[in-house]
Amino acid sequence: MTSPSALCAGRVAVVTGAGRGLGRAHALAFAAEGAKVVVNDLGVGLDGSGAATGPAQRVVEEIRAAGGEAVAHDGDIATTEGAASLVATALDAFGRLDTLVNNAGFLRDRMLVNLDEDDWDAVMRVHLKGHFLPLRHAAAHWRAEAKAGRTPEARIVNTSSGAGLLGSVGQGNYAAAKAGIVGLTLVAAAEMGRYGVQVNAIAPAARTRMTETAFAGTMAAPGAGVFDAMAPENVSPLVVWLGSAASAGVSGRVFEAEAGRITVMEGWRPGPTADKGARWSPAEAGEAVTGLLAAAETPQPVYGAR
Results as ranks from 00 to 15, higher is better:
74 D>K: 04
117 E>H: 12
35 A>Q: 11
18 A>R: 06
169 V>H: 09
288 A>L: 07
210 M>F: 09
89 T>Q: 07
125 R>H: 10
280 W>V: 04
227 F>R: 01
253 R>M: 13
270 P>E: 03
291 G>V: 08
25 A>F: 06
2 T>K: 13
53 T>C: 10
5 S>Q: 12
82 G>Q: 01
185 T>E: 04
274 A>T: 09
299 P>D: 03
295 A>C: 05
259 A>T: 00
10 G>Q: 08
1 M>K: 15
295 A>L: 12
271 G>F: 01
131 H>M: 10
76 D>M: 03
120 W>T: 01
23 G>L: 00
178 K>W: 13
302 V>F: 04
263 T>N: 12
65 A>C: 07
117 E>Y: 11
90 A>C: 05
3 S>I: 04
179 A>M: 13
94 F>Y: 13
19 G>C: 08
160 S>F: 09
158 N>I: 07
4 P>N: 00
235 V>N: 01
218 T>A: 15
134 P>A: 02
1 M>Y: 09
269 R>F: 03
295 A>H: 07
117 E>V: 12
180 G>E: 14
221 A>H: 02
126 V>R: 05
69 E>M: 14
111 M>Y: 07
187 V>D: 14
241 W>V: 10
242 L>A: 04
97 L>C: 15
177 A>L: 05
227 F>K: 00
221 A>N: 08
104 A>I: 01
281 S>N: 06
139 A>M: 06
105 G>P: 11
237 P>Q: 06
69 E>L: 14
130 G>S: 01
59 V>E: 01
221 A>S: 14
262 I>G: 08
269 R>A: 00
135 L>N: 10
98 D>G: 01
222 P>C: 03
189 A>V: 00
233 E>T: 10
24 R>H: 03
195 Y>G: 05
260 G>M: 14
220 A>L: 07
210 M>K: 06
40 N>C: 08
205 A>M: 15
111 M>C: 13
24 R>I: 00
78 A>S: 14
130 G>H: 04
222 P>Q: 06
23 G>N: 02
219 M>Y: 09
231 A>D: 12
282 P>I: 14
112 L>C: 13
260 G>C: 11
93 A>N: 04
259 A>N: 15
94 F>K: 15
97 L>F: 04
39 V>R: 00
7 L>R: 13
86 L>G: 04
243 G>N: 12
109 D>N: 12
174 Y>F: 13
102 N>P: 02
123 V>S: 15
301 P>G: 08
221 A>T: 15
35 A>H: 09
247 S>W: 01
202 I>H: 05
78 A>K: 11
103 N>D: 05
21 G>E: 02
139 A>Y: 05
174 Y>S: 00
43 G>C: 03
212 E>V: 07
122 A>S: 11
145 E>D: 14
8 C>S: 15
215 F>T: 11
21 G>A: 07
204 P>L: 07
107 L>S: 13
54 G>L: 08
27 A>V: 09
193 G>P: 00
83 A>D: 05
61 E>K: 10
168 S>T: 03
222 P>A: 08
202 I>V: 09
90 A>F: 02
96 R>E: 00
74 D>R: 10
111 M>G: 11
39 V>Q: 07
3 S>L: 07
184 L>E: 02
239 V>P: 03
178 K>F: 03
142 W>V: 02
302 V>P: 09
8 C>D: 12
